[in-house]
Computed example of a mutant assay.
Amino acid sequence: MTRKIFKQFFLALVALLSVTFALTTLATADTSNLAAENVDITFGTTVDADLPAGSLLKLNQPAGAIYPLHNSTGKLLSRGIAGDASTAPSLTTDQIKLDVQSGNVYYQVLPDCWLQSDSTVTLLDSTGQAPTDPVALTLKFVDANGKEIQDAKTFDAQFSTTTDATTLATLETELLAIRPAVTGYNLVSADQAEHVITYHYAKPTISTGSTTVATQPSDPVTTTTPIPAKTEPVAVKGTAIYATKKIGLYTSPNFSKATRKIWYQKKQRQNRPQFVVIGYAKSRSGQLRYKIRDINHHSLTNNRRGYITANATYVTSLYYHQNPKKIQVISGHGLNAYQAVTLHGRKLHHYRKGATLEVKAVKTHGLTTRLVLSNGHYITANKTMVIKR
């Protein structure tokens, strides 16, 4: 076999294997396993949303053409998917994900593999028809007087207002929850109207007696706390919560028997089910829901995603955020004390279950907290391991 013929055979084999792998994997992939969760820092990070069930991606290039794949941050991967216009649509799944990064649109076609939208990729509905009237979403950044303090960001969401209204609303809810940082300003609020999300900012202020003075910070004012509704206690995105009563996990913010995946039964404090908040949504009746990832590492439910209630009667923070003054160790294995707030490095002491300890402060570490003991040592503030006394 000549080198030229071998090369052609090899390329054809790669193309065939790529198509076969893509189609077989899409049939079984758990598309709820998103890698794009970090939407709570400066603008340009990812925002993801489910496309309607049965959505299709039509790959318009000839057979053998390889479409490059990206990871959830937009980085080019070494893998690709072969396209074939004659057999399109070739990629289909119950829930293709939409991912927006700095105005670019990507579609999740495999776990942690995203296909960038361009003229060679067409999004179709479950009937194989192209959505009509694509919606342009715009993000604006204004000061207290309504003046733009940063250029607006506009991208084509590639939704139809008639067929994809629910998905579009979910994406807009996600956008309302992020907190883009603008140098020299604090984010005050966010609102939406006619597919325009407007973030309102103000100069940081300090109080001097009866006078309030605007400050001019030298560093960017960055926060990772989502904007809570005034009447609803909202857990910060990225933080851990646990269930204090029986709750359900649902595939939709509209809770029903049909959308319920499983029940989490009420358990003793040490064994309460734990979750990380990765997003927000509201039901048709306006009830706030948490979009969560299950972090019960020794359970069969570990890493599941879905929606749970945000009612503080049923779920609350997994960590103490105010000084409990005195705590008792309730972990069956006890817990360790450390010199560093990271709880890494040399262990200073091990406290057995039942030990009562004096707490002089609560220290924030990332999106968690630590308890500072009277001797200056650090221990976890996890409520499944310690309890206020």
Rank of each mutant, 00 (worst) to 15 (best):
R3A: 14
Q8I: 13
L16D: 12
S18G: 08
S18L: 08
V19L: 14
T24P: 01
T25L: 13
T25K: 09
L26F: 08
A27I: 04
T28K: 14
D30A: 06
S32V: 02
N33M: 09
A35I: 02
N38E: 09
N38M: 03
I41Y: 08
V47S: 10
V47Y: 05
D48H: 06
L51I: 07
A53T: 10
G54W: 07
L56K: 11
L57I: 10
L59Q: 02
L59H: 01
Q61A: 15
I66Y: 00
P68F: 02
H70Q: 08
T73Q: 14
L76E: 12
I81M: 07
A82N: 10
A82M: 11
S86D: 13
P89K: 00
S90E: 10
D99C: 05
Y107M: 07
Q108I: 00
Q108W: 05
V109Q: 04
P111D: 03
P111A: 01
W114H: 12
S119C: 02
T120D: 15
L124H: 01
D125Y: 02
D133F: 06
V135A: 04
V135W: 00
A136S: 12
V142G: 05
E148D: 14
D156V: 08
A157E: 02
S160A: 07
A165S: 11
L175I: 07
L176M: 09
A177S: 15
Y185K: 02
N186Q: 14
A190F: 10
A190N: 09
E194K: 15
H195I: 01
V196K: 09
I197M: 11
Y201C: 04
Y201D: 06
Y201S: 05
G209T: 13
T211G: 03
T215W: 05
Q216H: 08
D219T: 14
P220Y: 06
I227K: 06
I227T: 03
E232L: 10
A235S: 15
K237L: 14
K237E: 10
I241L: 13
T244P: 01
G248S: 08
T251Y: 11
S252F: 07
S252R: 04
P253H: 12
F255S: 02
T259Y: 01
R260N: 12
I262G: 08
K266I: 04
K267M: 15
R269S: 03
Q270A: 14
R272I: 06
Q274P: 03
F275P: 02
V277P: 04
V277K: 06
Y280P: 00
A281C: 08
R284W: 03
S285T: 14
L288S: 10
K291R: 15
I292C: 07
R293H: 02
I295E: 06
I295P: 05
H298D: 15
S299K: 11
S299F: 05
T301Y: 12
R304C: 05
Y307L: 10
A310G: 02
N311M: 07
T316G: 12
S317C: 01
Y320P: 03
Y320V: 04
N323S: 11
P324Q: 03
K325M: 00
K325W: 02
K326R: 12
I327E: 04
Q328L: 01
V329Y: 03
I330L: 08
I330D: 08
A337T: 04
Q339L: 05
A340M: 08
A340D: 13
L343V: 09
H350Y: 05
G354P: 09
T368N: 10
T369S: 12
H377V: 00
Y378F: 15
Y378I: 00
T380G: 10
A381Y: 07
M385E: 11
V386A: 00
V386Q: 01
I387Q: 13
